[in-house]
Design a protein around this nucleic acid. Structure first.
Lengths: 332, 332
DNA sequence: GGTGTCCGTGTTATCGCTCACATAGTAGGG
DNA sequence: CCCTACTATGTGAGCGATAACACGGACACC
């Protein structure tokens, strides 16, 4: 910076003014300074600036299964939004969700002076762990429970589950099972609750022993195999995400049950591949990227304008009816 | 820091020594300082430290399709490794790969004083754009061509394609088609070349008009539909990734062609879902997480030990034979 | 022509830390 | 018992920027 100032024949402060786009600089001077900056390939040192302003213009993201389509897409949305606002995104991916790992992640981010943190985890334990932190550091939780005064952005998981279940009821199904996500996950709980409540309203109930998977195709497969043994009369299964639904599809195929002629399947998430499953999967679409964008905006608002009351944004979902659902077999 | 020093009755320099684990501190003093730090909930300011040491302990990652399983997993590997080395990972996800977007991304990261950059893109144009930058900033490219003296970490794409193609030849297939990835992608090119060369060696050749997809299931579907029209005698298709293979599976199903009885399919990547496709997909497994880890290690080495000659690491792949491949139909 | 006001620019302090060097005390060798 | 050598700690400078304030000159107004 001193070099630039010297070359342009001004003081370092004037250079600083040019960098920061201050009004109080004569156009001629501004041009001279900019020319000097270009000539010297000068790049302001963000660390020095951050030190004096106390602002790092960096936000942290804490994620877990970031290799999954959902979180990866949300991260993409966050990054896109952050980019536009000239923030940098720092990611911490933990292999497992628990109190300690969340605290470790946030500590790591704080040490690097992030200005705020986005939590990408629906485990209520993760949010609970961060509740005290949120008083010192702006925090927004995505796909999370609106508790502890932490702002959240989610889609209407419960509503999506209701919609999926209604779809099956409307097709005439009566014996409907659910393959749930991890028991500790709020999303999984809401999807289960939405399904159960909707069935109850219609005078039906979930078969006993709903299995809790881990979102993976493998777990969906295993749970479905068990389900078919325990309850061969099931004519429809609402599966808590598309990957597990794929596993269920595989299990049904191996069991010789046709989809949707014998059993209908509904998934959740609408991953891009789901339209190419055999058969193409009926599922609930949620806009992960939008969640990320909204999440970042909410965080930025808290960073720049301080704590207001915590907002809880709920985005819309969409039922995508494809070929994996149809009326139950005549005999059922 | 001054507060800690005062409370512990030492100078700020001694506090600094304790923070940095210097040897030259009496155990009693160290304890007193640590107690003071805990009491005051003191956290060293990384920006000040970065300013004076000139080290931000942050690396940048430039990615494109980071919502895909491969890049997302690699990112996960990078982050894990970076975490262990106490580096922070900052991600920039660009919507498209081209010279400008790559340069923009790297500029953004440099402005935030990252110490090095990992490029997650197999497009040679992206690497070419960064070649000049790599002389000023440590850089490692993943899944990329070893050019311009930039270190790389990849798996043996060509070898994987050879292995996949041989597998089909050994099963007795003679009319083998390929569905390729984007023409600009090095991975796609190598997979295509490996397939073509292996066929040529065996005295066969690729049917004319190999389609170039965009890695998505949808593109795989469309290319396969076209392929089946143009070349109905094909008995096997090697598809450049699993998502496109899923699309191909769908197209075959709709065309009434059974897999593997009528047509065999081999994918590439071994995404976790591929074992649950209908039928489970024969594919080439590559360890994306390991690529990320190795990539970070290589970058760290360059950051901390300066430029040596550029290393090019090639990791092993593995052919996973599942149910989507079998001998060609008797008539073929 | 004096004076207040605004504009463009410069001067100095400061952010929180590490580095290089200074210094006091302690121990060991002859 | 002196000198060297090393240990534990302190002092002051400076990293590269911004903030706060100071200052000279041009202009307008009375």
């Amino acid at each position: 910076m001193a070099d630039v100032a010297r070359l342009a024949g001004v003081s370092h402060q004037t250079v600083s003014r040019v960098i920061n786009g201050s009004e109080r600089v004569a156009p001629a001077t501004r041009d001279r300074v900019q020319a000097a900056m270009r000539l010297l390939d000068y790049r302001p040192n963000s660390m020095a600036r951050a030190l004096v302003t106390g602002r790092s213009r960096t936000v942290g993201v804490i994620g877990f299964n970031t290799t999954l389509f959902g979180p990866a897409s949300t991260l993409y949305g966050i990054e896109g939004s952050a980019h536009e606002a000239e923030y940098l995104t720092s990611v911490v991916s933990m292999p497992e969700v628990n109190r300690d790992s969340v605290l470790l992640a946030v500590e790591r981010l704080r040490r690097h002076n992030v200005e705020g943190v986005l939590l990408l985890a629906s485990e209520s334990s993760a949010i609970a762990a961060l509740a005290p932190v949120s008083r010192e550091l702006p925090l927004v939780a995505l796909e999370a429970e609106p508790i502890h005064g932490i702002p959240t952005v989610t889609i209407d998981q419960y509503g999506g589950a209701v919609s999926a279940t209604r779809h099956l009821l409307e097709l005439g199904h009566r014996r409907i099972a659910h393959i749930a996500g991890p028991a500790g996950s709020l999303e999984a709980q809401l999807r289960l609750a939405g399904c159960r409540d909707t069935l109850a309203e219609a005078g039906h109930r979930l078969p006993a022993g709903t299995g809790f998977g881990d979102w993976s195709a493998g777990s969906g497969y295993e749970i479905c195999v068990r389900l078919l043994e325990q309850d061969p009369d099931v004519t429809a299964i609402f599966v808590a995400n598309d990957q597990m639904a794929l596993g269920a599809l595989r299990a049904l195929d191996e069991a010789g049950r046709r989809v949707p002629a014998d059993v209908s399947i509904v998934g959740f998430d609408a991953v891009p591949e789901s339209g190419f499953f055999t058969p193409p999967l009926t599922t609930i679409h949620q806009d992960f990227v939008a969640i990320g964008r909204r999440g970042f905006e909410a965080l930025r608002d808290r960073i720049e304008n301080g704590d207001g009351p915590a907002t809880h944004q709920v985005l819309e979902f969409e039922l995508l009816v494809r070929a994996s659902t149809g009326p139950p077999p005549a005999g059922a």
